[in-house]
């Protein structure tokens, strides 16, 4: 130490040792007490989050059902529209020859034809019965 051109205040090292010896006490006071958290407490927020999502989905579905639902008759119309392309198209010869169907007696549409057609186009039987036999 004798080579050093430095000094310290009088009694510095006694003071220093006293000050440094207080570090353990000071640090123990500063230590934040560890709160033990159970595993259940850790996962509870995630359950709550999942429950919130589930409630939101159910509520949304319920509101949609209540506000956007359609009357049942509309389904019939829709089914008819879906099967509209099943209606037989006009024969290409008939387009230019008006007498094409004249000799063809089978052209006459019978009630059976209508019923078959309606059945083939998925119109409900109750609807067919109501319409034809009322």
């Amino acid at each position: 130490m004798n080579k050093r051109p430095y000094t310290t205040p009088d009694g510095y090292f006694d003071f220093l040792q006293m000050r440094l010896s207080q570090i353990p006490e000071q640090q123990q006071v500063q230590e934040i007490p560890q709160v033990r958290v159970s595993r259940w407490a850790k996962i509870t927020p995630y359950f709550a989050l999942v429950a919130c999502f589930a409630i939101a989905i159910v509520a949304g579905r319920f509101i949609l059902d209540k506000t956007v639902s359609q009357p049942e008759e509309d389904y019939v119309t829709l089914e008819q529209l879906y099967s509209a392309d099943l209606i037989p198209y006009t024969s290409q010869y008939a387009l230019f020859d008006e007498s094409y169907y004249e000799d063809d007696y089978s052209y006459e549409i019978t009630e059976d034809d209508i019923i078959n057609y309606l059945i083939n186009t998925n119109v409900p039987l109750s609807y067919i019965g109501q319409t034809l036999y009322q």
Binding site: M1, R4, L16, Q17, I23
Partner: peptide, 15 residues
Amino acid sequence: LFNQIVKDYSERLYW
């Protein structure tokens, strides 16, 4: 052990 380090080495570490 900490107090021992303070007593034995604080002066040397200071320098």
